[in-house]
């Protein structure tokens, strides 16, 4: 359904004086999502994962420069095609209530989302139906976003994404700082959407949340996907995981060995020449620092490491 091929995003900006710096928060990213599947993109906060969603929708800021290809249902996405698909075929579930217009009634915003999704004639009915589906009381229609509780806000944001007939849902960090029950509810909603044969991309820093609902987990490190593995590989001592970063990440979880990985991710302003993980990698060799590894398919996994073996 969605296929992202070596996507890179650069930002040019002027630092002190007139020195131009280039930020590259996304580097050679690959991702594949099929209908009926939840693919979680897991990476640390503030590492530019959201940009992936914005790039797929074509709503990056104007100073962003994109390389690579994004394919949707066999069509290469151009800015024109993206404009036609935003809200209709591809929908976003944003992070928080701050993504709702603070001065517009909730009902009107959901209605507007329905209209934009192409349900012009039936938008009012669609809005009512989606309220019912997500158990939003009718009076919420007349509320303003600041009156919504955390759970209601989440349900509203989900309902805005699916009020139309979007086939691909991009959920960007949909569970930050929420009550565990609300997190669970939101994750269930995403699972349901996938079970209705939609494709769902869950962008999150919360690996626990990802493990609960995802079919595939793409591990995001320093702007790229270092490994894409089926959720079943994330078990035991991580024998099914092939990339040294993914293994280290798995070992660092509290319920596993709880061993932190020393060092820090490279800054998007100053990326290493070769493999992005090489500076922290126990297996790094001269070859690793010379050239960036490409994605390789090994068993069920996709790995960006020359040392990985099944």
């Amino acid at each position: 359904m969605l296929e992202v091929r070596s996507l890179s995003i650069h930002f040019h900006r002027y630092a002190r004086g007139l020195r131009r710096t280039v930020l590259t928060p996304v580097v050679d990213l690959d991702l594949k999502v099929s209908a009926g599947e939840v693919v979680a993109v897991v990476g640390s906060s503030g590492s530019g994962k959201s940009l992936l969603a914005h790039a797929v929708l074509g709503i990056l800021p104007s100073n962003a420069h994109i390389e690579g290809e994004i394919w949707y249902k066999g069509q290469l996405l151009t800015p024109e095609r993206q404009a036609a698909m935003r809200g209709r075929r591809i929908a976003l579930i944003p992070q928080s209530v701050s993504f709702l217009d603070p001065l517009m009634r909730v009902g009107a915003q959901v209605l507007r989302a329905a209209q934009l999704s192409g349900k012009n004639r039936h938008s009012a009915a669609a809005q009512r139906a989606i309220f019912q589906r997500y158990q939003l009381p009718l009076e919420v229609e007349r509320w303003y976003p600041f009156q919504l509780s955390g759970g209601m806000a989440r349900r509203t944001l989900v309902s805005m994404a699916v009020v139309g007939e979007a086939e691909l849902i991009l959920a960007d960090e949909p569970t930050p700082g929420l009550h565990p029950e609300v997190v669970q509810e939101t994750l269930n909603h995403l699972r349901q959407l996938a079970d209705e044969q939609r494709g769902v991309v869950l962008i999150t820093h919360d690996i626990q949340a990802a493990l609960q609902v995802a079919d595939q987990i793409a591990v995001f490190y320093a702007g790229t996907t270092v490994e894409i593995a089926p959720v079943t590989a994330f078990s035991g001592k991580g024998e099914g995981l092939l990339h040294p970063y993914t293994q280290a990440l798995w070992r660092s979880l509290p319920q596993n060995e709880f061993i932190p990985l020393p060092g820090m991710q490279p800054s998007p302003q100053d990326l290493p020449q070769g493999c992005l993980f090489a500076p922290r990698c126990p297996l790094a060799t001269a070859e690793c620092t010379a050239e960036r590894p490409t994605m390789r398919a090994i068993a069920q996994n996709q790995v960006r490491c020359i040392h990985a073996q099944g």
Partner: peptide, 14 residues
Amino acid sequence: NSDYILFARAQGEN
């Protein structure tokens, strides 16, 4: 430049 404009753009608003 606000979040809600970004979300509105994601919904297909011109």
